[in-house]
Design a protein around this nucleic acid. Structure first.
Lengths: 167, 167
DNA sequence: TTTTATTTTCAATAATTACTGAAAGTTTAA
DNA sequence: TTAAACTTTCAGTAATTATTGAAAATAAAA
């Protein structure tokens, strides 16, 4: 396979994976493009590389900056902004985990806690409800703590600990 | 809070969480409804409970059956099908993990393996590309193996192993 | 059989989400 | 200043994804 072909396929695959997990396809594609580029790219180059409009490129670049998945690079003597992508996938995973924990897991934990405070908690209906909600709450809390662990750990330690269970 | 109100809020929350993670909102809501119901529900009851059409209910029920997240229950002397949901969230997590590993992680692993086989792998461009792809491939493989571990483990063992790292 | 209850399918439509492109805004250099 | 280079915004549009509802298919009962 030719390099250019492989690059395009990689970008497609990353975009597809992103969209399957609730991340905008273009955002994932820009991220992919920057991960495999040896040098930082400008907005123009990103637009060109993915055949997308300036507006689309800009919006998704901002979002990737928010997620800390790419960084702005200043090139001396050039007014344009350039961007480079984090290339260490362990870092990428940690940053995604950090964002999603904050945006999605924590609010659900919050809500589940509230839902356990219901009146007339003695009917069988209420008991079933409370049992399920408590079960999920406990689980979500463990996930939350596991993500925290992962954010503190280094890759080898983290996976080492899990994988040695496999034997 | 009243039980009925809490139930509705739970269904909303579960649907939102699902859609944030690439799972159809209605599918997640039906699953939520069945998790907190003490008795199996018919298609009619699900339609009613969520104010959705028969077609929508049917499609998503089939999909939940495929994912093994709900089960068909036969009520003697009744022609209708009833469904109940898995209420143990650890089981739910394992079943979702199993499906997504199969549908999404495995194909990506496959593809990443192919992408490493490129011609002219000596240019700096190609080296950057290969380094990133290998990095991701190795990572995805670890995730894949971790999910396998989780599928074999029981909940306490699994989380115990991770959480004790936290101290 | 024929009738009735139930489930499945799918074309049409609605809802949601993403994208474009041009105008407005901002920054730097002349 | 003014002009040029660049970035951001956002209304309009396109693309995608989800839903409806009625007809067709299937299964059980009469």
């Amino acid at each position: 396979m030719k390099l250019e072909e492989a690059k395009l396929q990689f970008i497609q695959a990353w975009g597809k994976l992103g969209s399957e997990w609730g991340i905008n396809r273009t955002m994932a594609q820009i991220h992919a493009l920057l991960m495999i580029s040896e040098k930082p790219l400008s907005t123009e180059e990103i637009m060109e590389g993915l055949s997308i409009s300036r507006g689309n490129a800009n919006m998704n670049i901002r979002e990737l900056l928010n997620w800390n998945l790419i960084h702005k690079v200043l090139v001396p003597g050039d007014r344009k902004e350039y961007f480079n992508g984090e290339k260490d996938i362990w870092e990428v995973a940690k940053r995604i985990a950090r964002e999603r924990k904050k945006r999605e897991i924590e609010p659900v934990l919050q809500e589940l806690k509230q839902l356990q405070d219901i009146e007339d908690s003695n009917s069988p209906e209420a008991k079933q409800f409370l049992a399920t909600v408590k079960n999920i709450h406990g689980f979500a809390d463990k996930i939350d703590k596991s993500v925290e662990t992962m954010l503190k750990a280094d890759e080898n330690w983290f996976f080492g600990s899990i994988l040695k269970l496999l034997k």
